[in-house]
């Protein structure tokens, strides 16, 4: 605002600036309102839930809705399942990605270009097409309703391998040469030279993978068949079934359990994540 005072800004410019902010505030409100509605509903008493016009802010905050929601299903167990499958999935996928990224960036091999095209082709195949065959394979392996079954089919890496390969290619040749002279093999060079240098990229990739694994619904839904193996999104979705017979305030409270970790990760690292997405898409 100080800028406007100091410089003689035309009134047309002022109006344009006002309209820009008005439009953006409106857009942010449209996006933010459902989140706010989720939160206020989760804090309402049943009497204030079923009322129209709605109460914007509950007269008394019913924090016990969260306790009721937590007890309505084994949410502690869902949390463990989600944390175990998401973190182990991220670790495995990054390992797989780093190994193949390094190979495509640094190791000479006669069929490297052809294999790179194979990797490219994999990106075009949607996971939704693979549901039935993956289920059949897992059944043969005896992995249905296990952590392995949830995790392993989704730790192959195309996007991550590309991203890390791009980064490894930017590391100066002389560093790789130095590593070789010091008697480091490819494996050591990857772990002690390339990966530490790529830490920011690996970090962004890890956050991105964590969020997408945490949020995934369709595959864990298919591959789990007992309540104690469900991940948070699957467990949350099941709450809507009639057997639970819980109100919207509890559904919203339970939704918040599921959302909190991703929203925390997002708002801590939002700049990094948004810029990573933009950069990835523009290059790709």
């Amino acid at each position: 605002m100080g800028v406007i005072g100091r410089k003689a800004v035309g009134s047309r410019d002022l109006i344009a600036r006002f309209l820009t902010h008005a439009a953006l505030v409106f857009a942010a409100a449209v996006i933010g309102l459902p989140f706010l509605w989720m939160l206020t509903t989760a804090l309402k008493s049943p009497a204030e839930v079923y009322i129209f016009p709605p109460v914007w802010w509950p007269s008394e905050l019913r924090l016990d809705n969260f306790a009721t929601a937590w007890r309505s299903a084994p949410f502690g167990r869902f949390y463990v399942n989600s944390i175990v499958t998401a973190t182990s999935g991220v670790a495995l996928e990054i390992a797989v990605a780093a190994l193949s990224a390094y190979a495509f960036a640094r190791i000479k091999f006669r069929y490297r270009d052809q294999l790179f095209i194979v990797l490219l082709a994999a990106m075009m195949i949607p996971g939704q097409v693979a549901l039935i065959p993956n289920y059949v394979v897992l059944k043969h392996l005896g992995w249905i309703n296990t952590y392995r079954g949830i995790v392993i089919p989704h730790v192959s890496s195309v996007f991550g391998a590309f991203l890390l390969r791009q980064y490894f290619l930017t590391i100066p040749e002389s560093l790789y040469d130095a590593a070789e002279i010091d008697g480091m093999g490819h494996f050591k060079t990857l772990f002690f030279i390339a990966l530490p240098l790529a830490r920011p990229v690996v970090g962004t990739l890890a956050l991105y993978l964590f969020i997408s694994k945490w949020n995934s619904y369709l595959w864990p839904l298919i591959v789990t068949n007992t309540q104690n193996m469900r991940t948070l999104p699957v467990g949350l979705a099941m709450l809507r079934q009639a057997e639970y017979a819980i109100g919207p305030e509890h559904l919203m409270a339970a939704s918040i359990f599921v959302l909190v970790p991703v929203l925390v990760v997002f708002f801590i690292a939002q700049k990094q994540l948004i810029e990573g997405i933009a950069a990835g898409a523009v290059k790709g």
Binding site: T41, F52, P54, L251, M252, L263, F266, F267, Q270
Partner: peptide, 26 residues
Amino acid sequence: AIIFSPTFTTSVAIAMVWGWIFDPNF
């Protein structure tokens, strides 16, 4: 950040809250 935030929000939770937003009575 606000306008981008639904991109990373759990779709199941999004569907839950919108189901309630679309409730014809409340």
